[in-house]
Simulated scan of single mutants.
Amino acid sequence: MKILITGGAGFVGSALALSLKKNYPSYEVYALDNLKRRGSELNINRLKAAGVEFVHGDIRSREDFDSIPAVDAVIEASAEPSVLAGLNGSPDYLINTNLVGTINCLNFALKHKAAFVFLSTSRIYPIKPLEKLTYVEEDTRFALAQQQPLPGASEKGIGEYFPLDGARSLYGATKLASELMIHEYNEFYGLKTVINRCGVLTGPWQMGKADQGVMVLWVARHFYEQQLAYIGFNGTGKQTRDMLHVADLYRLVDWQLHHMDQVNGEILNVGGGVEVSTSLVELTKICQEVTGKTIPIKAVTEGRTADIPLYITDNSKVTALTGWKPEISIRQIVEEVHEWLQENAEQLSYVLK
């Protein structure tokens, strides 16, 4: 099999590329990336050492696909991933990457009749409907109540039939617009596609920032003994997310690549679920235990644009369809990230410190 991974030097793309090459040494894997995100350049040597062919290019440019041979599958893992992208300035890069770039990827896949695996986001679900959900405030987190006022929501999390009307962030809008185009290519061109609406992805080699990659950011700030803040929701740190280790995502993408007919045309919510979820205050406690360090954490009552108190993925559909479910716990994620930081502290300090 020949596979193109866009965003292939990014956190998710490189992890998928390395795992595919490790498990299928005979596969030809191409990683296309513009290296815009700080720290992505650190993955080039890792990719080359594993036998992945790195292609320096940009999905916004159709010409940059010309050097890539025919492939059997495209994994679209490229994105401007920040929820805050475009809100404080021009949205051009965001739109051209997350929407126009996806269309270029679709056309490349169509040219070669390649299967198309799209990594979307839980951020396609609009903010105001999410805010209408019934929450329970527990000692250390917010949790979803059993009875919910909207379809697609339950104590298990958010399912695929949650309402889509409303604003969601420019980032979420570009990903949803890409999903709509993927539907059209699937229906009218016969392109085999699957859409994975991912929750918070994490793991070693993620260059975490405040607006994207919060798990790694939290562990790194403890490791380097720097300050953090509980922002919004009265500064309690009870805002809660499910987390998905990139190795768990890989197991699903691997299955999809080899069972494309069984997932063709599907939209799947993919995340850690209730079992692999944490609030910030709970995450702080685990970080203290794993790193052995306690750092100052400010309480900021004022919230941030596009932030929500709680998001948990309901994996019921993807589990029923594929048998997949996440296996790596919050504590194991923190331990792996901490070990990675210890092994690469000097190399990573300019990005994460």
Rank of each mutant, 00 (worst) to 15 (best):
Q262S: 12
S178N: 03
E275K: 11
N196G: 11
W218R: 01
K192R: 10
A173Y: 00
S279N: 11
K192E: 13
L268D: 09
K209E: 14
L257M: 04
L217G: 05
Y171I: 02
R168P: 02
N269S: 09
V270R: 06
E179D: 13
N196K: 08
S169N: 03
G272Q: 13
V246T: 07
E179L: 02
F233W: 15
L217A: 15
G190M: 04
V246R: 06
T202G: 08
V276D: 14
S279V: 05
K192I: 08
V253I: 12
Q288K: 01
S277T: 13
T236Y: 14
G199E: 09
A247Q: 09
T240F: 14
S169Q: 02
D242Y: 09
Q256W: 09
G172A: 01
Y230S: 07
K238N: 12
L257T: 03
V263W: 14
Y224W: 13
R168A: 03
I195D: 06
T278P: 11
R251V: 04
V194E: 06
D211Q: 10
V253Q: 06
E289T: 12
M181L: 08
A247F: 00
L280K: 01
L249W: 12
Q212Y: 13
S169E: 01
G232R: 04
L252T: 05
L228Q: 06
Q226K: 14
V216S: 07
R197V: 05
L170P: 00
L268R: 07
